[in-house]
């Protein structure tokens, strides 16, 4: 569905995206992960035709975005970081307008359908400028899917939403992807990616540093937090001796952080049980991978 090859974008002397290549299959949900300024938005904007690339190609459904922008864009629904809303219009007017410029056969019907899908029926007649941030974000998403595109590109669809709204948006994206829709979404909220995505692409300073299935990337790498009643140097040594443990840090008060290469919770528990194991928890593994790859690790 998406084929990006050797994409480079330069702003003056700054290199925003450097030689980026990746592809996304039809029906996949792929998460774009990276720190602020890593080049996520730039890549998405190039893919959606808002920005020209310095070099390289971006294809959607086999169509080059630069060569045949109209055909490519009619297949894409794009939600920018800031939802592009005309605040003086009502939700329904706005979505009808979007449906018209995106070339749907029946704009009113398409708008009503999008309103239903995103749960905007109760505010459809209201002026967008008077809506809360959560509703505005939903109008932005409705705009992206009003022409039922094959590909949804969502730039931080969850920013500024409360947990309930996040869960709703997540459900909506899952529902869309259960159909034929391909989804590329960016976020820096890691649990979102783990909950939603089949695959993650991690970028840093405009370059891809890892791309794989969520499980494979998480792959047991992580940190196990351990609390024991009777801490001792002997315990630390025993833990360190386990196969697959990288390091053990004693944090005092019986708290240990055990860095592991794979899932070692069972082994660690067995070792620590004699020292009076009180608590064992596994920290977010993806987060760890992310920090390690983007050089943000402590």
């Amino acid at each position: 569905m998406i084929e990006v090859a050797n994409l480079t974008k330069r702003y003056g002397a700054t290199l925003a995206v450097e030689d980026l290549s990746f592809s996304v299959e039809r029906g996949e949900i792929v998460g774009f992960l990276g720190a602020n300024g890593a080049g996520k938005s730039t890549t998405m904007r190039i893919l959606c035709g808002a920005l020209g690339a310095t070099s390289g190609t971006a294809k959607v459904d086999g169509i080059d975005v630069m060569e045949d922008p109209k055909a490519a864009k009619s297949r894409i629904g794009y939600l920018p970081e800031a939802p592009p809303l005309y605040l003086e219009m009502t939700v329904r007017q706005y979505l009808r307008f979007c449906a018209r410029i995106k070339g749907t056969a029946n704009p009113s019907e398409a708008a009503d359908k999008a309103i239903g899908r995103v749960g905007l029926a109760s505010v459809a007649h209201r002026i967008i400028g008077n809506l809360s941030k959560g509703y505005r974000q939903r109008v932005g998403i409705a705009q992206a899917l009003v022409h039922e595109p094959q590909l949804l590109v969502l730039d931080e669809p969850n920013s500024g939403l409360d947990p309930k709204q996040r869960a709703e948006i997540r459900e909506l994206i899952e529902e869309l992807a259960a159909g034929e829709t391909t989804v590329l979404l960016s976020t820096h909220v890691l649990p979102e990616i783990e909950a939603l995505c089949d695959r993650v692409i991690i970028i840093d300073h405009g370059r891809i540093v890892a791309q794989d299935a969520v499980e494979a990337l998480g792959g047991g790498m992580g940190v196990i937090k351990l609390v024991v009643a009777a801490p001792s140097a002997e315990l630390a040594a025993k833990l360190e001796a386990l196969d697959g443990v990288n390091a053990v840090k004693a944090k005092g008060d019986g708290v240990y952080l055990v860095e592991t290469q794979r899932d070692l919770r069972a082994e660690v528990a067995r070792t620590a049980v004699d020292a009076g194991l009180l608590e064992l928890s596994s920290q977010r593994q993806l987060e760890d991978v992310f920090l390690r790859l983007t050089g943000g690790a402590a």
């Binding site: 904007r45 959606c48 035709g49 808002a50 922008p69 109209k70 055909a71 864009k73 009619s74 894409i76 794009y78 920018p80 592009p84 809303l85 005309y86 979007c98 410029i101 995106k102 070339g103 705009q143």
Partner: peptide, 9 residues
Amino acid sequence: TLELLLTSP
């Protein structure tokens, strides 16, 4: 909002 127009077909 220009982004909407620029990314529409």
